[in-house]
């Protein structure tokens, strides 16, 4: 099977992100592969192990995008492609969907394109569905279980009401949620291989599309308001007395 996983580099989940001079900054917090994309790479590797084939990881971005690609290579992906172009500054997720679509088409013969459910920087979660729409492939989003049966996929999608069980023919787009399987840690050999890997860079003209127009205008960035709360600790007495005191306080807030 020809499998693709689309990955992005983001600041680590513990990064203290804040706005400085109109831009989001995170000091020297590490950049990592977007945690949701690790599930995408894991799902692709599992499918390869079960059915044969190869896994290519793709990222759209600048030099920082290599971090996610190298992590995926270290996990066991076969090849990586970086799509980078000076024209790509501040592209929005929809432009990325167009670019990834063009890259997947250029690779040709792809059976499944895997995505994480969303990137933890922009938090849009729209790219998988948009890429699927552009490719004309079924959008199997929020997937937690995948089974391959010949040329079709049967998945369980995590929705508000529980799980929706869906079947589709290949090729397909699949976006992953957490309980699809914990991502493996890169092995020592994997890390060595990834550090030596030459990652080819494709420009937009090489994948045959013009610079996608930005559809979203960013007006301003603001720091989230700080939560001004002083914790009132309920103390004194035995658990029953503390509990009664706490219940009284909570009910007194009239939020129930």
């Amino acid at each position: 099977m020809k499998l693709v996983a689309c990955v992005k580099t983001t600041p680590d989940t513990t990064a203290a992100v804040k706005v400085e001079n109109g831009k989001a900054t995170w000091g020297d917090a590490p950049l990592v592969i977007n945690p949701w994309d690790e599930y995408a790479v894991e799902a692709a590797l599992k499918l390869k192990e079960a059915n044969g084939g190869n896994v290519t990881v793709i990222s759209v971005g600048g030099e920082e995008a290599r971090i996610a690609l190298k992590h995926a290579l270290a996990m066991g992906a076969d090849d990586a492609v970086l799509i980078s172009d000076p024209a790509l500054v501040g592209v929005d997720p929809q432009a990325v969907a167009h670019i990834l679509t063009a890259a997947i088409q250029k690779l040709g013969g792809v059976d499944v394109a895997f995505f994480g459910r969303q990137a933890i920087d922009d938090d849009s979660g729209t790219t998988p569905a948009q890429a699927a729409r552009l490719l004309g492939w079924p959008a199997l989003t929020l997937v937690s279980v995948i089974k391959v049966d010949g040329r079709s996929l049967r998945v369980e999608r995590a929705i508000e009401e529980g799980r929706q069980i869906v079947t589709a023919k290949l090729p397909a787009v699949v976006s992953l949620v957490k309980d699809s399987g914990e991502p493996r840690y890169p092995s020592f050999m994997g890390i060595r291989k990834a550090s030596k890997a030459e990652i080819p860079t494709w420009s937009l003209s090489q994948i045959g599309i013009p610079v996608p127009a930005a559809v979203i205008e960013h007006v301003t960035l603001i720091n989230a308001p700080v939560r001004e709360v002083v914790c009132e600790l309920i103390t004194g007495g035995n658990p029953q007395e503390i509990a009664e005191h706490l219940a009284e306080k909570i009910l007194g807030e009239k939020q129930l």
Partner: peptide
């Protein structure tokens, strides 16, 4: 965005 650490205004 950034899990609620930052807010952005967009149109």
């Amino acid at each position: 965005i950034y899990s609620g650490k930052v807010l952005e205004k967009v149109t």
